[in-house]
Amino acid sequence: MIDVDKLTRRFGARTAVDELTFTVPRGQIVGFLGPNGAGKSTTLKVLSGFLPPTSGTARIGDHDVVEASLEARRLIGYMPESFPVYPEMRVDEYLRFRAEIKGVRDRKAAVARAMELADITDVSRRLVGELSKGYKQRVGLADAVVAKAPLLILDEPTEGLDPNQILRFREVIQALGKEHTIFLSTHILSEVEAVCSHVIIIHKGKIATAGPLDAVRAELSGGAREVSLVLAPKASARDAWAADAPKAMRDAVEGLDGVTVVRAIMADAVVRVEVKVSSEADAVEALVARCVGASLGVREVTPHGRSLENVFHELTTRAAEHPPTQKESAA
């Protein structure tokens, strides 16, 4: 659905997007992730046909965004960042206008459907300029879906929404994902984890990593995962723990393969421990068995999947030090 090849966009001497190459297959919900200023919005502006690329190509369906711009634009429902509006128009009036310039035939039904989807039917007669930011964003979503374009490009769609609206928004995105290909940019990682099947992470205009969500998450984990434990050692052993909890913990797991103690802190007769264990399932089991065997009073065991947050942080800070490895595709 989206096919980007060596896409570069410069603003004067500054290179915002640097030889970006990726594809978004039909039917996927792909998250486009990166810190502020990574080049996300610029990429989306090129895809939407607003900005011409400096070099490289971008295709929507079979249409080049420069050569066949109108055809490409007909396939896209685009929602720009902090959705810009005509303040003097009413919500339904605005959506009817948008439906008309997008060539929608049954405008009344299309607008009603879009307003219902974006949950803005109750404000349909309000002036767009008077709406809160969250409502404006939802008008933007309604605008993007009003022509039932097969591809939705959403630039930071949940920015400015309150937590309830964000949850609702995610549900809507997931529902829309059944009929549309969705390419959404964000710097909020939990958003990607909540709705996307694939992710492309960019940093300083280049792709840091791309692929299915699980694969990206696993990519940097190096096979290790973190487990945190809460222990309540017997009263007789507490002095040793209070004196040097990390050492006591290291003694306790002595000889266990692939277990490293990251930190251990004792407070109020309870020890909170974080350890890194190799990914083999029995390493965690062996660790717990060892603690139980030593009567350490295991109260909680929490294994942590490697969060996208960590991957993101690691990638973007690592990329600052070393040039990133370029992946060819998100597929």
Partner: peptide, 14 residues
């Protein structure tokens, strides 16, 4: 100024 040019010029209009 209001950035509505972005929605206007990305609609399928010349």
């Amino acid at each position: 100024r209001s950035r509505t040019a972005e929605t206007l010029l990305t609609a399928p209009v010349t």
